[in-house]
């Protein structure tokens, strides 16, 4: 497929905009010298991913990302940043290792490997439009996937208890 054909689809323009936003903010997440900025950039990246989910017709997943990630997880991160007094730019603490280039090389190699593999495998295959409503997802989640769903809830419960046990002050101290 030619690029001109591809870009003729208006949705792909939206995709480009969102994709650039995601990648740009993701790069800021891993390079920003300010930890709070990094966390806020993650919000942008995740918001972009929610946009992609909407494009792919996964409404419920999109809103879950907004609620759970942007609503809860990021708050958790900000708490973690505050509690651990992570450097927020003004301090001269080194946030990165010296080994930047080898790491970039590994990351690039990983990207090339994956991208090459997917391009070879899928090429120009198109995605058909389909919007999945929350109702359908709920029906399948509570019938076919009810046991994995319960297992996941147990994982969350274990994480809840584990988090409390780990982070609470030792009462004997």
């Amino acid at each position: 497929m030619e690029f001109t054909d591809w870009i003729a689809d208006a949705r792909n323009i939206v995709f480009l905009v969102i994709g650039v936003a995601i990648i740009g903010s993701a790069i800021r997440v891993v390079t920003s010298p300010n930890v709070v900025h990094a966390a806020l950039m993650l919000v942008v990246a995740l918001g972009g991913s929610a946009g992609l989910f909407l494009m792919l017709g996964a409404e419920f997943v999109a809103w879950t990302v907004v609620l759970v990630y942007i609503g809860a997880v990021i708050v958790l991160f900000l708490f973690g940043i505050m509690i651990t007094r992570a450097p927020t730019g003004r301090d001269s603490v080194q946030l990165d290792h010296a080994r930047r280039w080898p790491a970039a090389l590994v990351a690039l190699a990983m990207f090339v490997t994956i991208a090459w593999a997917t391009t070879v495998s899928f090429g120009d295959a198109l995605i058909a439009d389909r919007v999945v409503r929350a109702e359908d997802l709920g029906a399948v989640l509570f019938s076919r996937y009810v046991i994995p769903f319960e297992v996941v809830s147990f994982v969350l419960l274990a994480a809840l208890i584990g988090g409390i046990v780990l982070a609470r002050q030792d009462p004997e101290r």
Partner: peptide, 12 residues
């Protein structure tokens, strides 16, 4: 490091 580098080596 070992994990990711190893993955790439395996794929290659």
């Amino acid at each position: 490091w070992a994990l990711f580098a190893g993955t790439i080596l395996l794929v290659v």
